[in-house]
Protein backbone atom coordinates (compact mmCIF):
# COMPACT_ATOMS: atom_id res chain seq x y z
CA UNK A 1 0.00 0.00 0.00
CA UNK A 2 1.74 3.07 -1.15
CA UNK A 3 1.26 6.18 -3.17
CA UNK A 4 1.50 4.43 -6.45
CA UNK A 5 -1.44 2.20 -5.59
CA UNK A 6 -3.74 5.09 -5.04
CA UNK A 7 -2.48 6.69 -8.20
CA UNK A 8 -3.14 3.54 -10.16
CA UNK A 9 -6.61 3.18 -8.74
CA UNK A 10 -7.50 6.75 -9.56
CA UNK A 11 -6.08 6.38 -13.03
CA UNK A 12 -8.31 3.39 -13.48
CA UNK A 13 -11.26 5.43 -12.26
CA UNK A 14 -10.59 8.27 -14.63
CA UNK A 15 -9.86 5.90 -17.46
CA UNK A 16 -13.13 4.07 -16.96
CA UNK A 17 -14.98 7.34 -16.69
CA UNK A 18 -13.37 8.66 -19.86
CA UNK A 19 -13.88 5.50 -21.89
CA UNK A 20 -17.50 5.28 -20.78
CA UNK A 21 -18.12 8.87 -21.71
CA UNK A 22 -16.38 8.38 -25.04
CA UNK A 23 -18.63 5.42 -25.67
CA UNK A 24 -21.71 7.55 -25.00
CA UNK A 25 -20.42 10.12 -27.46
CA UNK A 26 -19.67 7.93 -30.44
CA UNK A 27 -21.98 4.94 -30.21
CA UNK A 28 -25.15 4.73 -32.18
CA UNK A 29 -26.34 1.40 -30.87
CA UNK A 30 -28.62 1.83 -27.90
CA UNK A 31 -27.44 -1.28 -26.09
CA UNK A 32 -23.84 -0.29 -26.51
CA UNK A 33 -24.71 3.09 -25.02
CA UNK A 34 -25.81 1.18 -21.95
CA UNK A 35 -22.50 -0.67 -22.00
CA UNK A 36 -20.77 2.70 -21.93
CA UNK A 37 -22.89 3.76 -19.03
CA UNK A 38 -21.97 0.60 -17.15
CA UNK A 39 -18.29 1.30 -17.74
CA UNK A 40 -18.70 4.73 -16.21
CA UNK A 41 -20.51 3.21 -13.26
CA UNK A 42 -17.64 0.79 -12.68
CA UNK A 43 -15.43 3.81 -12.29
CA UNK A 44 -17.82 5.34 -9.78
CA UNK A 45 -17.88 2.13 -7.75
CA UNK A 46 -14.16 1.83 -7.73
CA UNK A 47 -13.70 5.37 -6.56
CA UNK A 48 -16.18 4.90 -3.74
CA UNK A 49 -14.35 1.83 -2.55
CA UNK A 50 -11.07 3.66 -2.86
CA UNK A 51 -12.14 6.69 -0.87
CA UNK A 52 -13.56 4.42 1.80
CA UNK A 53 -10.24 2.69 2.09
CA UNK A 54 -8.14 5.78 2.13
CA UNK A 55 -10.32 7.51 4.70
CA UNK A 56 -10.04 4.55 7.00
CA UNK A 57 -13.71 3.71 6.69
CA UNK A 58 -13.57 0.76 4.29
CA UNK A 59 -16.99 -0.56 5.19
CA UNK A 60 -18.61 2.77 4.54
CA UNK A 61 -17.03 2.98 1.12
CA UNK A 62 -18.08 -0.55 0.37
CA UNK A 63 -21.62 0.00 1.50
CA UNK A 64 -21.84 3.05 -0.75
CA UNK A 65 -20.44 1.04 -3.62
CA UNK A 66 -23.05 -1.62 -2.93
CA UNK A 67 -25.81 0.94 -3.21
CA UNK A 68 -24.33 2.24 -6.43
CA UNK A 69 -24.17 -1.27 -7.81
CA UNK A 70 -27.81 -1.86 -7.01
CA UNK A 71 -28.94 1.50 -8.30
CA UNK A 72 -27.10 1.24 -11.55
CA UNK A 73 -28.05 -2.35 -12.12
CA UNK A 74 -31.65 -1.20 -11.85
CA UNK A 75 -30.92 1.60 -14.28
CA UNK A 76 -29.35 -0.94 -16.63
CA UNK A 77 -32.35 -3.22 -16.30
CA UNK A 78 -34.78 -0.44 -17.05
CA UNK A 79 -32.55 0.76 -19.85
CA UNK A 80 -32.36 -2.68 -21.40
CA UNK A 81 -36.11 -3.07 -21.08
CA UNK A 82 -36.49 0.25 -22.84
CA UNK A 83 -34.09 -0.86 -25.53
CA UNK A 84 -36.01 -4.07 -26.08
CA UNK A 85 -39.23 -2.12 -26.28
CA UNK A 86 -37.63 0.31 -28.70
CA UNK A 87 -36.57 -2.57 -30.88
CA UNK A 88 -40.06 -4.02 -30.73
CA UNK A 89 -42.00 -0.92 -31.56
CA UNK A 90 -39.55 1.01 -33.72
CA UNK A 91 -37.68 -1.91 -35.12
CA UNK A 92 -34.16 -0.66 -34.63
CA UNK A 93 -31.64 0.22 -31.99
CA UNK A 94 -29.93 2.85 -34.07
CA UNK A 95 -29.98 6.24 -32.36
CA UNK A 96 -30.29 7.84 -35.77
CA UNK A 97 -33.77 6.36 -36.01
CA UNK A 98 -34.86 7.38 -32.55
CA UNK A 99 -34.03 11.04 -33.00
CA UNK A 100 -37.36 12.24 -34.21
CA UNK A 101 -37.89 14.66 -31.36
CA UNK A 102 -35.88 17.71 -32.05
CA UNK A 103 -36.03 21.50 -32.16
Amino acid sequence: MNISTSMIVLTAVMGLFGIGLYCLLITRNLIRVLVGLQIMVKGAMLVLVFVGQSQGQPSLGQSMALTVIVADTIVAVVGLALAVQVKRSIGTLDIADISKLKR
Binding site: M1, I3, S6, Q57, L60, M64, A71
Partner: peptide, 29 residues
Amino acid sequence: LLDFPIILNQDAGFQQLVWENRKADLYLQ
Protein backbone atom coordinates in the same frame (compact mmCIF):
# COMPACT_ATOMS: atom_id res chain seq x y z
CA LEU B 1 -2.40 15.45 -4.36
CA LEU B 2 -2.59 11.72 -4.60
CA ASP B 3 -0.57 10.75 -1.60
CA PHE B 4 -3.52 9.17 0.09
CA PRO B 5 -2.40 6.13 1.96
CA ILE B 6 -4.79 3.25 1.95
CA ILE B 7 -5.57 2.65 5.57
CA LEU B 8 -6.86 -0.68 6.61
CA ASN B 9 -7.87 0.00 10.18
CA GLN B 10 -11.13 -1.72 10.82
CA ASP B 11 -14.24 0.29 11.46
CA ALA B 12 -17.60 -1.25 12.14
CA GLY B 13 -17.92 -4.47 10.24
CA PHE B 14 -19.41 -4.47 6.79
CA GLN B 15 -22.55 -6.31 7.81
CA GLN B 16 -23.23 -4.03 10.70
CA LEU B 17 -22.59 -0.99 8.59
CA VAL B 18 -24.89 -2.05 5.82
CA TRP B 19 -27.68 -3.39 8.00
CA GLU B 20 -27.52 -0.90 10.82
CA ASN B 21 -25.65 2.31 10.12
CA ARG B 22 -26.69 2.70 6.52
CA LYS B 23 -30.06 1.03 6.78
CA ALA B 24 -31.65 4.04 5.09
CA ASP B 25 -29.68 3.26 1.96
CA LEU B 26 -30.63 -0.39 2.21
CA TYR B 27 -34.29 0.51 2.52
CA LEU B 28 -33.99 2.65 -0.57
CA GLN B 29 -32.29 -0.15 -2.45
